[in-house]
């Protein structure tokens, strides 16, 4: 029936195909995002609402240790923004969980698995597109922050480093989200399971309140929580109030701890997720 002659499949080294296929899947995910702008819109609205609620509801009630008491709520807003950044990018993982569960439920994963493509490209494409979306989310949040009085004090390079750390963290949790998503029987479960663990993760940290007020056990958890590290690193890099910094190693070396813990998380969960993807059948 066809006139086009049968083609030769192109030859490339394995790693080259992983990049190529990962790029194709990333592109597909991003196109899909633009076709349902509602989803993107509400994923932007949610953190903006958080900023407004925390800045104007909790703001005056939470004193920041070390900040000028006269600054009051204004200091809290500067303190708050890196916390919101950290919390928001953590929620990128929920998108990975739901996205993968949806692809499995709709049979698209079956299609991918029947193709001679690099298997893990589906996961690399998923995490890459979910992180790229966070670039837009961070941009919108930053503008919101500027409106409520947050400022970048330490110059361009430090600010870029802060944003890169946030994206690295988003990439790490996105792999955790993938691994969870591959275990989900359907999208409804994924919607819940993708979110529940994120609340303790982001609230057991210095994102919204200084560590000083927490009971000792909780404080220790929060000190070692990568969220606290990435948020503290951003506060330092942006030149925002840091609040109380404890003697714990992650608090003393937030940048190194962020890079190290994210690297470890990516290594562990990418391995687990790729293995699960290959097995799942």
């Amino acid at each position: 029936m066809a006139t086009t002659p049968a083609p030769e499949q192109m030859k490339r080294p394995m790693f080259g195909w992983l990049l190529h296929d990962g790029f194709v899947v990333t592109q597909r995910n991003l196109i899909a995002t633009t076709r349902v702008p509602e989803v993107l819109f509400f994923s932007l609205v949610q953190p903006v609402i958080f900023v407004l609620l925390f800045a104007y509801v909790f703001g005056g009630a939470i004193p920041i240790p070390g900040a000028d008491p006269a600054a009051g709520a204004a200091a809290y807003r500067e303190y708050l923004m890196p916390g919101i950044f950290g919390q928001t990018v953590a929620f990128a993982s929920a998108a990975s969980t739901v996205g993968l569960a949806e692809d499995m439920q709709k049979g698209i994963i079956d299609r991918f698995r029947s193709l001679p493509m690099a298997a893990s490209a589906v996961l690399f494409g998923r995490t890459a597109s979910d992180v790229l979306r966070q670039v837009l989310v961070l941009a919108v949040l930053s503008v919101t922050g500027l409106i409520v009085g947050w400022r970048i004090h330490n110059g361009f390079i430090d600010a870029v480093c802060a944003y890169l750390l946030l994206l690295l963290f988003a990439y790490a949790v996105s792999w955790i989200g993938c691994w969870i998503g591959l275990h989900m029987p359907n999208t409804e479960t994924a919607n819940t399971a993708g979110l529940v663990w994120l609340f303790p993760l982001t609230f057991l940290s210095n994102a919204f309140v200084p560590l000083t007020g927490m009971p000792p056990v909780v404080q220790t958890i929060a000190e070692w929580n990568p969220v606290s590290a990435v948020v503290l690193a951003c506060r330092e890099l942006f030149g925002n109030p840091t609040g109380y910094i404890s003697d714990a190693w992650p608090q003393q070396h937030p940048i190194a701890y962020t890079v190290g813990s994210c690297g470890l998380l990516i290594l562990i969960f990418a391995t687990l997720a790729v293995r699960k993807y290959r097995q799942s059948a």
């Binding site: 029947s114 001679p116 493509m117």
Partner: peptide
Amino acid sequence: LTGQYSAIDEYLTGLENLSMVGRLYHL
């Protein structure tokens, strides 16, 4: 393989779906 349920991306256009699969076949 054409499975029991349409394994295509409903947010992509028909053409985008085909070109995605073609590229993943490494053609």
